[in-house]
Design a protein around this nucleic acid. Structure first.
Length: 728
RNA sequence: GGGCGAUUAGCUCAGUUGGCUAGAGCAGUCCGUUUACACCGGAAAGGUCGGGGGUUCGAGUCCCUCACCGCCCACCA
């Protein structure tokens, strides 16, 4: 027996060496596994992509959990003999990273616009590189057996090619279009954002009821009087007899110095019960009003600019911020005796997820992806959709989940997914920021356009905007495999088997991946979606740097070892459920590692390699032990395939500690001391056999300690990481 | 306004096709320097499984209802 077993297990002393051994042996790369004869060339494949962490800093416990889950599955599949590929990478996270760097520059008194686009982007690249290096270190520390030789970045050249190809195809199919529409403007971030980047906040607001002017016949209600300078109509319900006489008329009124031309229209979307039953229509500054204006051919009148300031001909409010303009307008209405009612009410305000700024709906020229337009899907690998079918993106996204080609775990998120698609509107993909994939459109003289490729012509100018960061990450399952080139990797590994990610990005990312994959490839991006929950602090609060309750996985690893950290993030945490994290749990699994260590010590003291071979006689008791173990293996094999790691990890813990150590070792101890020769042999075999096979089944969960023990026992340079999963 | 999740031991949580005396970690109690392990072993204690009703031979598990907490979605101005 090796003397190291005389001391408690010290993860720190072995982990980084073991990770290097695995990596240097090349076993993270399926090609090497084939070359070295540990995986058959014709073995079934198993592939997953790592959800690329944002290069905005460091990884948190949520990432650690994601890595633990994925690595456990990947190691299991590799041991089962599958041709297993796990591709790592990072995400440029356009807006998040840019904001972060801007803040850092601000500390040095520097500003984005003083630097200029190129110099600023250099700063961002440097930051992203640093961030990437830290992240790569953390991924390794977690023991993740990712194939580093295939590492990707959402903003590198290969991925840019994929983005350009995708954009071009969508443009040619009429699915990407440029149009002036009312969009969600973030006045703080100075960019448009998509519907999904909006967070609704409940606030108190006052609902004002008033008339524009004394000579105007209808009173309206609004929480935003300052937008009324942009009104071009008043809408009432078609059946509302109170206002029927006015419908179709246009009134010229002077509203606090602004000349308004208000047409009275009838629209069924107006609720006659709400307020006065009449709605002032502001097409330029409200999404709903814009839609109504489109339907009624109403003119657009912009009175608020990108800085959320008024641009009207009214002396009263021109140039003021919207909040100040509101106050002024309200005062004016009161003073003119036009105000009829003021009522406190609850209101949901749209704010920008990133900056927290209140969204200002504005008409702007932007790029969109049309989710409803039908197009011809030339080549379909999808069940129930034939080549050449006329479909929309929405239909594709719905179909693949509805038909069961993509399976979501936990199942309840399917409902959430369908609900989102039903309400989905065209996806605004342009952003007024610098960091990211620049829109691949070049404008030439006389309306000439080059889409998807640089014309290399001085008279052409590229679009200033960049793409929503999710546009490039939506291509991740195949852009990482070399698409649009017809690579071997793409042929072998797509569609991927599993997407494991947080439920909080089901819309941002998961749905968009399904959109892109079904459209561009006529295929699903993955077969199963496993959604994990959020790791909160011990009190159930969301971890964040600003709250000071964030835990760095590296600190935990330092104290308790990676295996313990992994187990603490696996045991008992089912898909889709949030977890409150406490260090006690990690401590418990550090003890567990030590228990394995000491059990090993005992077995090694009592047995030799030769005991592994089945002896002539096995006692009935030992046969029972071995049968029990084999049925456990059978059970957990099935459960891992069903992604029930939360159950399996607990069962293994329980078996090792309370069956193997508490019962079997104690029993064998007695028989080795007092039994006859056959009984001794039988007991030794049981111990040796169970030890070796426990190492195997524990390995995906606790890769370091099991590999360390394995290599101590096996002096022949074999590695547990590529040894065969036990047959059950 | 719509949808979803949670409510199990003092604390944090498992318990997925309804089935033996409901489990784990931590905390707490008692005993133990038995040759793998004090990062341990043994023993005991602790739960009307949120309330109420129903289905069933049998319910923590299924159905209805109520309560409280949390999350997501939503263009009632």
């Amino acid at each position: 027996m090796d003397n190291k077993f005389l001391k408690p297990y010290e993860p720190k002393e072995v982990e980084s060496d073991i990770y290097s051994k695995w990596r240097d042996a090349g076993f993270f790369n399926p090609d090497v596994c084939i070359t070295k004869g540990v995986t058959r060339m014709d073995a079934p494949t198993y592939s997953i992509v790592l959800p690329p962490p944002n290069v905005t800093g460091v990884l948190h416990l949520g990432h650690a959990m994601m890595l633990a889950i994925q690595d456990t599955i990947v190691r299991f599949q590799r041991m089962r003999g599958k041709r297993t590929l796990w591709i790592p990478g990072t995400d440029h996270a356009a807006i998040a990273t840019q904001t972060k760097v801007e803040k850092l520059l601000q500390k040095d008194g520097k500003r984005k616009h003083d630097l200029g686009r190129e110099a600023f982007l250099k700063e961002v690249d440097a930051f992203a590189q640093d961030s990437h290096d830290t992240i790569a270190k953390q991924i390794s520390a977690m023991g993740a057996s990712v194939d580093w030789s295939r590492e990707a970045f959402t903003l590198d050249d290969t991925r840019e090619k994929a983005v350009h190809t995708a954009f071009k195809k969508m443009y040619e199919d009429g699915l990407i279009y440029r149009k002036e529409k009312v969009i969600n403007w973030d006045p703080k971030g100075q960019t448009v954002i998509s519907d999904d980047e909006i967070v609704h906040e409940a606030r108190k607001a006052t609902l004002y009821t008033f008339k524009y002017a004394a000579d105007f016949p209808i009173a309206i209600s609004t929480t935003r009087p300052e937008t009324k300078y942009g009104d071009t109509a008043v809408a009432v319900h078609p059946d509302d007899t109170r206002y029927a006489q006015f419908v179709g008329h246009t009134f010229e009124v002077n509203f606090a110095g602004e000349q308004l031309s208000i047409q009275i229209i009838a629209d069924p979307s107006v609720d006659p019960e709400f307020g006065t039953g009449a709605l002032g229509v502001t097409p330029a500054h409200s999404q709903t009003d814009y839609d109504m204006a489109q339907a009624h051919n109403l003119p657009l009148k912009q009175v608020i600019n990108e800085y959320a300031k008024m641009t009207t001909s009214s002396e009263l409010v021109n140039g003021l911020k919207v909040e100040e303009a509101r106050t002024k307008t309200v005062e004016w209405l009161r003073s003119q005796a036009l105000m009829i009612d003021e009522q406190e009410s609850d209101q949901n305000v749209s704010t920008a997820e990133r900056t927290g700024a209140i969204i200002e709906p504005l008409p702007k020229l932007q790029w969109f992806v049309d989710v409803n337009k039908k197009f011809t899907l030339k080549h379909s690998h999808l069940d129930g959709i034939t080549d050449g079918a006329q479909v929309s993106l929405k239909e594709l996204m719905t179909h693949v989940v509805e038909s069961g080609q993509i399976n979501i775990l936990p199942e309840r998120f399917e409902k959430t997914y369908f609900h989102w698609i039903t309400n989905l509107r065209d996806w605004c993909i342009s952003r007024q920021i610098w960091y990211g994939h620049r829109i691949p459109v070049w404008y030439g003289p006389d309306g000439a356009l080059s889409v998807g490729q640089d014309p290399h012509d001085q008279s052409f100018v590229q679009d200033d905007d960049t793409l929503d960061t999710w546009f490039s990450s939506a291509l991740w399952t195949f852009s990482t495999l070399g698409w649009p080139d017809a690579t071997e990797d793409f042929a072998h590994y797509h569609p991927t088997d599993l997407l494991e990610t947080g439920y909080d990005i089901i819309f941002f990312w998961v749905a968009r991946m399904i959109l892109m994959s079904t459209y561009l490839l006529g295929d699903i991006p993955f077969k199963t979606i496993y959604l994990h929950g959020i790791v909160r602090d011990a009190k159930g609060k969301k971890m964040s740097k600003s709250l000071g309750n964030a835990i760095d996985p590296l600190d935990l690893i330092e104290t308790y070892g990676t295996d313990a950290v992994r187990m603490s993030l696996l045991v008992g945490i089912g898909p889709g459920s949030d977890t409150n994290f406490s260090e006690d749990k990690v401590r418990a699994y550090k003890k567990f590692a030590n228990k394995i260590w000491n059990a090993t010590r005992f077995v090694l003291e009592q047995t030799t390699d030769a005991d592994f071979a089945t002896p002539d006689t096995l006692t009935q008791q030992d046969t029972q032990y071995l049968n029990d173990f084999n049925s456990l293996v059978h059970e957990i094999t099935k459960e891992i395939e069903e992604y029930k790691l939360y159950l399996v990890s607990e069962k293994l813990y329980h078996y090792v500690w309370h069956t193997f150590a508490d019962i079997i070792i104690e029993d064998c101890k007695k028989r080795i001391a007092q039994g006859n020769e056959d009984e001794k042999k039988s007991a030794r075999h049981t111990l040796r056999y169970l030890l070796i096979n426990q190492l195997k089944v524990l390995h995906p969960f606790m890769p370091f300690i099991t590999e360390e023990i394995w290599q101590t026992i096996h002096k022949d340079n074999t590695m547990l990481i590529v040894s065969a999963w036990p047959h059950a």
